[in-house]
């Protein structure tokens, strides 16, 4: 028996919108720790890891570890039927081939339940080793989204370079080149508007902009984004989800062959 009640149901709606472009089908894993997902895109270039900790739910009952295969576009279709202020409850019985999403309006005058068919998904689970990153950049998520969108109108790839001067996003295409430098800026009114760079050593890596743009679908989840870079390692683009957890996107770099 599984029953997870999320008062801020809009978070789950935003999570689905953030990952459904990247991943079609995925297993949601439910355990005492929380509600989680790990999935790769179909090209095995990017990986998404989601965690919603059990403490973030108003009610969290998960009698035994359960893995539920879902088509994310179908799940998003159902969650779009929930109001932004609705409380969402996810329910499943042991051994059932369906999951139920229950939506309650804030004043309890409308209660809806949507039952969705589960699917068997043979997914690989990758071990993500702890890494010391050469550079960690924290910046406003909207600013990062703007940069990725702007650069993708010029080129297909972005070179992200971190030096003590700041973080530089560069691209080149048929019509020309573009460079955007963001300097560290801690003297802002609100901490979420700051750009903070922690650099152990300079790093420069090349990534496909198509994936970066896809990651920015998570922008509504968090005011800030953290970009962690190390030479020859996948970049980690992390959006924290309120007090509940995170979505982390890993993207393999383009490398010399």
């Amino acid at each position: 028996m599984l029953e997870l009640r999320l008062v801020q149901g809009s978070l789950l709606k935003k999570v689905l919108e953030a990952i459904r472009e990247l991943v079609n089908d995925a297993n949601f894993d439910c355990s005492a720790t929380g509600f989680s997902l790990q999935a790769m895109d179909s090209s095995h270039v990017a990986l998404v890891a989601l965690l919603l900790r059990s403490e973030g739910f108003e009610h969290y009952r998960c009698d035994r570890n359960l893995s539920m295969g879902m088509n994310l576009n179908n799940m998003a279709k159902m969650l779009r039927c929930a109001g932004n202020d609705d409380i969402i409850t996810i329910k499943a019985d042991d051994g059932s081939d369906t999951v139920t999403f229950m939506f309650e309006s804030p004043n309890q005058d409308k209660i809806a339940d949507f039952e969705m068919k589960l699917m068997d998904i043979d997914s690989e689970h990758l071990g993500i080793p702890d890494a010391e990153y050469h550079a960690i950049v924290r910046m406003p998520s909207a600013e990062f989204a703007r940069i990725c969108k702007d650069l993708s109108s010029i080129g297909d790839t972005v070179v992200i370079s971190v030096t003590k001067e700041g973080v530089k996003f560069s691209t080149a295409g048929d019509i020309g080149t573009a460079n955007i430098v963001c300097r560290q800026n801690k003297t802002v009114d609100k901490p979420e508007e700051a750009t903070v760079i922690e650099m152990q050593e300079p790093v420069s890596l090349t990534f496909a902009l198509r994936y970066m743009n896809s990651f920015t679908k998570a922008t509504p989840l968090s005011e800030t984004v953290t970009i962690s870079l190390s030479s020859e390692l996948p970049v980690v683009v992390e959006y924290k989800i309120a007090d509940m957890g995170y979505i982390r996107f890993y993207l393999a770099p383009k490398i010399e062959e």
Partner: peptide, 14 residues
Amino acid sequence: LKAQARIERFFCNS
């Protein structure tokens, strides 16, 4: 020219 690496190059099956 650079080639796109796949994620399994860095993270192994667990």
